[in-house]
């Protein structure tokens, strides 16, 4: 087992542990701060899975901004909130069924890190081996994001824009 595998496995285990603690915690402030740690752990995992751009975004957005926004929301509603639960049995049955169906599904998937998996067969080689000539910038993620899939990114920016409009409509005051 290489060092990369060990890092990968231990980060995944830590993620699962922090999620289990998150599930059991009742104090809202602690839940929010732990969810920031959870995001930072997943950013670390993304680095070990070669997704540096994603890790960068997750660290800035998940660990930074989301935590700040959640803290802002807690400042509005006050942290002395009762945390009650619905029944435990029905949700447990539902997730047990869903989980077993999903685990059955993973057995059909290509094993982790397999270079012959179908996902690597079609557009990925073109992006990796021709973007250097076609676009001329080293970061393939940026070429795909901004050029090959520019239309897609335009849509994503429009979604972010729409979310801002929604928040302003819900919370904003009329312009002075």
């Amino acid at each position: 087992m290489g060092i990369e595998t060990i890092i990968n496995l231990s980060l995944l285990t830590l993620l699962a542990l922090s999620a289990i603690v998150l599930m059991r915690l009742q104090n809202l402030l602690a839940v929010v701060l732990l969810s920031g740690i959870y995001s930072l752990l997943s950013a670390g995992l993304f680095v070990s899975l070669d997704a540096v751009d994603v890790a960068f975004t997750e660290a800035a957005v998940g660990a930074g901004l989301t935590t700040i926004l959640l803290l802002g929301a807690i400042a509005i509603i006050g942290k002395e909130q009762t945390v009650s639960r619905h029944g435990k049995l029905l949700p447990l049955v539902v997730i047990a069924i869903t989980a077993s169906a999903l685990i059955y599904g993973t057995l059909d998937m290509p094993i982790f890190g397999d270079p012959t998996a179908p996902i690597h067969a079609y557009v990925a080689p073109r992006y990796l081996f021709q973007s250097g000539e076609e676009i001329g910038i080293p970061n393939v993620v940026t070429s795909v994001l901004a050029s090959y899939r520019g239309y897609d990114t335009l849509g994503e920016v429009a979604v972010v824009f729409t979310a801002a409009i929604g928040v302003l409509l819900l919370l904003g005051k009329p312009n002075k």
């Binding site: 997704a51 751009d53 992006y127 990796l128 979604v159």
Partner: peptide, 27 residues
């Protein structure tokens, strides 16, 4: 493979925007 990276990169930012919208509704 860079393709999933691109999809997830944008999904993270859209995710925080929708989380903010959810928080606004909660407020």
């Amino acid at each position: 493979n860079p393709l999933p990276h691109v999809l997830i990169l944008t999904a993270i930012v859209v995710g925080v925007a929708t989380t903010a919208l959810g928080l606004a509704i909660i407020a």
